[in-house]
Simulated assay, not measured.
Amino acid sequence: MHGTDETAQRLLDSSARLSRDPETEIDWDAPLGDGYGLSPEWSTLYGTAYWEELTEVQRRELTRHEAASVASTGIWFELILQQLILRDVYALNPAGAEFQWSLTEIADECRHSIMFARATGRLVDVEYRPRPLARELGRAFKTVATGESAYAAILVAEEVLDVMQRDWMRDRRVEPLVRTVNHIHVVEESRHMVFAREETRQRLIGASGPRRWVSALVIALAADMIVSSMVTRAVYANAGLDADRAVREARHNEHHRALLRSSCANLMDFLGEVGLLTPAATRVYRRTGLR
């Protein structure tokens, strides 16, 4: 076995022992309480003058809409991820560990998407989707992305969500349903991140400088697309806020940008280690607030 196959076999073994089933582990009929949708400190408005003006009820409602929007963005990218992986393993040996792990990961992502969809439907009564331009760019990305560009972009989405959700799943102010959903996702995504890192390393073996430069920029642009789609203008309007003011204050919220940077510290270290943190990519990450 080469490195990827060895990693895949370890992850298959782990999955057999530790996989979770949201259908049976979550009581979907239990009534919702009055908890937050996410840790208040992770709200895009926390630390702004607008946040200080909101009542406790308004803050709770805002975080529920933010959590629903983040989960919907997660569904969108998981659909992209599944197509990237299916295309990548199309010609692999079905008896190999890498092929079998890839399908296991896709099965995990299917369960996660259903879980996010059901949880979102419980939290709010509106639909959230990335803006049309992001959806079309995502359609193009899943069609053309290959190799390290695909797997490192997968890693970006998973790493950013992972740090957020680790905070939310431990926070007793957060609605129990949301905490359980986040806990299941964190446990299973930890395996996915291990594999994405291994695949990225393997795909970069022998890669030329120009190829690394292009891949680094593509990954950074994908990160920008993902992060900017997490909480859209509609969230503020649906939460009953002044959307213009909320967008303006959220855009300049240094507290939230600091949280994003801290959540991506390990990711940035990894990208630097494998040569995917070029000056051009770094400028995009800084604009996005990830560095």
Rank of each mutant, 00 (worst) to 15 (best):
G3V: 08
E6Q: 12
A8N: 04
Q9V: 02
L11Q: 04
D21Y: 14
A30T: 01
P31Q: 04
L32C: 11
G33F: 12
S39M: 07
T55D: 04
L62P: 11
R64E: 12
A71P: 00
T73I: 01
I75K: 12
E78H: 09
L81F: 13
Q83M: 10
L84Q: 05
G96M: 05
I106E: 00
E109A: 08
C110N: 14
R111A: 07
S113I: 13
S113C: 09
F116Q: 01
A119L: 03
T120G: 15
L123Q: 04
V124K: 00
V124P: 09
V126F: 15
E127T: 13
P130Y: 13
R135G: 07
F141P: 06
V144S: 03
V144K: 00
G147H: 01
E148D: 12
L155R: 04
E158C: 06
E158Y: 09
V163H: 10
M169H: 11
R170Q: 08
R173P: 04
V181T: 13
V181Y: 01
E189Q: 13
E198L: 01
L204P: 12
G206I: 00
R211V: 13
R211N: 06
R212V: 05
I219Q: 06
I219N: 04
V227M: 14
S229Y: 04
V235M: 07
Y236F: 09
N238P: 01
D244S: 10
R248F: 03
R257K: 05
L260S: 06
S263R: 09
S263G: 13
C264W: 03
M268N: 14
G272V: 10
V274D: 07
P279N: 02
T282P: 00
R286F: 09
